[in-house]
Computed example of a mutant assay.
Amino acid sequence: MPVISSERDTEALALTVVARFDAPAERVWQVWEDPRQLERWWGPPSWPATFERHDFVPGGESRYVMTGPDGTRAGGWWRAIDVSPTRRFEWADGFADAEGEPDPSMPVTHAVVTLEEADGSTTMTTVSTFASLEQLEQLLAMGMDEGMRQAMGQIDGLLEE
Rank of each mutant, 00 (worst) to 15 (best):
M1V: 09
P2H: 06
S6N: 10
S6L: 11
T10L: 11
E11H: 10
L15Q: 01
T16Y: 08
T16D: 05
T16G: 02
A19T: 02
R20P: 08
F21T: 09
E26R: 14
R27H: 06
R27C: 00
V31I: 12
E33M: 14
Q37S: 06
Q37R: 12
R40D: 01
R40Q: 07
W41V: 04
W42E: 00
W42S: 01
P44G: 09
S46Q: 14
W47L: 02
A49F: 09
R53P: 05
R53H: 08
H54A: 06
D55T: 06
G60Y: 05
E61G: 12
Y64E: 11
V65S: 11
V65N: 08
M66D: 04
M66C: 06
G68P: 10
P69V: 07
T72F: 05
A74E: 04
G75R: 02
W78A: 04
R79P: 05
D82L: 12
D82Q: 14
D82Y: 09
V83F: 05
V83T: 01
S84F: 11
S84M: 10
T86D: 04
T86Q: 01
R88K: 13
R88I: 07
E90I: 12
E90S: 13
E90K: 14
D93S: 11
D93A: 07
G94I: 01
A96G: 13
D97R: 10
G100Y: 01
P102E: 04
D103F: 04
P104W: 09
P107A: 02
V108S: 03
A111P: 14
V113A: 15
L115Q: 07
E116Q: 15
E117K: 03
E117P: 02
S121H: 14
T122Q: 03
T123H: 09
T125M: 03
T125R: 11
T126P: 06
S128F: 08
F130P: 02
F130G: 05
S132Q: 05
S132P: 04
L133R: 15
L136W: 07
E137M: 07
Q138M: 15
L140C: 11
A141H: 09
A141T: 10
G143I: 00
D145V: 10
E146R: 14
G147V: 03
R149T: 12
Q150L: 08
A151P: 07
M152C: 01
I155L: 15
D156S: 05
D156A: 06
L159S: 00
L159T: 06
